[in-house]
Each structure stands twice: as structure tokens, then as C-alpha cells.
Design a protein around this nucleic acid. Structure first.
Length: 226
DNA sequence: ATCCCGAGGG
DNA sequence: CCCTCTGGAT
């Protein structure tokens, strides 16, 4: 008889104590910052989409530096398309992966112009069909514009969720699923930003500042604090 | 699994 | 020098 290796639940049930801890965790985040926002500069759905796409494996500071000049010249799909790949590159050459991003930015602009009349389609299917736009980027756009609560799992969210003991999954999709299961509705829209900002300024990748952490007492992996 | 890929921090 | 930064496509 083939032994069935006890399959782990993708989202393990939480004990009442665990759920209380998580509840306290987000109440703490909310008390500290009730309306967390993205730190990417944008002034329209299109510039938001472009900025988020450019932010892959790049700091928001470097992206804002580049988009300040890029958006002054091309803040619409139509303008981005006529600027062209070679025209875009000088503006974003200071950002990593710039060749790929320039190519995708123009290719996506072409689709937005030809298929969506220059507008940004506000649904996941259409967004993720754009070159350079995956689940994470689409989630950020949909969440930021208030279309639907979505928890984009980027490097910060992934790391912080693991450290706080909110998720164990190995892939971003698994972590997103676990977070959605654990975070109740009134917090879902803001959870992404709380986790991002916490990861950026406190729960830093290399050397987490546990000594200055507002949720250290609620953290699953706080032991060697400093 | 691998490629893309510059800037900033330690 | 090495690591990290709001990933996506192959």
C-alpha cells in the first residue's frame, strides 16, 4: 500500500493564540500609520503602472529619480510609444535591467494605445497580459487604485511575512495565499504597504533593526535582537 | 534554473 | 568586495 505522505495544508490553521497575535500585529501597524501609501511617484494610472514596472529589483528612490525626467516627456502610452525604446533608455539607464524595461515599457504602451485606447485596463487579466507586467505589478496597481484588495508579494513582503511568522510558503503565490487567509478584510488593502515599509525601514534584509522594531514583542523570529 | 543589470549600503 | 532593491520571461 503506497503510503500517502501526510500532505501539509497550504494554509495551516492558526490557533486562537496565533490569530490573536496576528490581530495585535496589524492593530499595531494601523496605530503607527493608518494610511500607508506607496513611495513611488505617480499622478495617473498609467504613470503608476509604468513606475511599478520599473521598480523591479530597483529601489523606489532610483525609480523616482528616473521617472521624474521620463514622465516629464512621456506620461501617457501614446507619448511613450512615440519616444521609442532607444528614446526611453537614456532616462532609465540608471536603473537595473534597463534594456528589458525599456523594451517592455514601449511594447506595453503599444498595446495600451492599440487595444485600450490609451487607457490602462483595470483588471488583472489585461494587466498581466502586458509585457513586463506580472502578478506582483498588477496587484500593486489594482490595490493602489482601489480596484480590489491585493497583497503583492515582493522581496520585502516575502521576507517580512516569513520573519513575522505569517507565512511559510516557498513561492510568492503561496505566501500571498497564506497572507490573504490570515489578514482580515479591513486591513488587506493596507497590509501590503505596512509590510513593505516595515521591511524597508525596520525589518531590513541584511540586519533587521529589532531594537527599534514596534512589533518585536509580537515577532516569531526576534530572538537575536539588536 | 537562468538571464537581465545599475546604484547604494555595509 | 558582496548584498540588496516593491520581478518577469524564457
Amino acid at each position: 500500500m503506497p503510503k500517502t505522505p501526510a500532505k501539509r495544508r497550504s494554509t495551516p490553521r492558526k490557533s486562537p493564540a496565533e490569530r490573536a497575535r496576528i490581530q495585535a500585529l496589524f492593530e499595531r501597524f494601523e496605530a503607527a500609520e493608518s494610511d500607508p501609501r506607496t513611495e513611488l511617484d505617480y499622478d495617473s494610472p498609467y504613470t503608476l503602472l509604468a513606475a511599478v514596472a520599473l521598480s523591479a529589483q530597483a529601489t523606489d528612490v532610483s525609480v523616482n529619480k528616473a521617472t521624474a525626467r521620463l514622465f516629464a516627456v512621456a506620461d501617457s502610452p501614446k507619448k511613450m510609444l512615440s519616444l521609442g525604446e532607444e528614446g526611453v533608455i537614456p532616462y532609465i539607464a540608471s536603473i537595473g535591467l534597463f534594456r528589458t524595461k525599456a523594451k517592455n515599457l514601449v511594447a506595453a504602451a503599444k498595446i495600451l494605445v492599440e487595444t485600450y485606447g490609451g487607457e490602462v485596463p483595470l483588471n488583472r487579466e489585461a494587466l498581466q497580459a502586458l509585457p513586463g507586467v506580472g502578478r506582483k505589478t498588477a496587484s500593486v496597481v489594482l490595490n493602489e487604485l482601489g480596484v480590489e484588495p491585493a497583497i503583492a508579494v515582493d522581496t520585502h513582503v516575502y521576507r517580512v511575512a516569513h520573519r513575522l511568522g505569517l507565512a511559510r510558503g516557498r513561492t510568492p503565490d503561496q505566501v500571498e495565499h497564506e497572507l490573504m487567509a490570515v489578514i482580515p478584510d479591513p486591513w488587506r488593502t493596507r497590509a501590503h504597504h505596512w509590510l513593505i515599509l516595515h521591511g524597508r525601514y525596520v525589518c531590513i534584509a541584511r540586519r533587521p533593526r529589532c531594537g527599534e522594531c514596534p512589533v518585536a514583542d509580537l515577532c516569531a523570529s526576534r530572538e537575536k535582537a539588536s
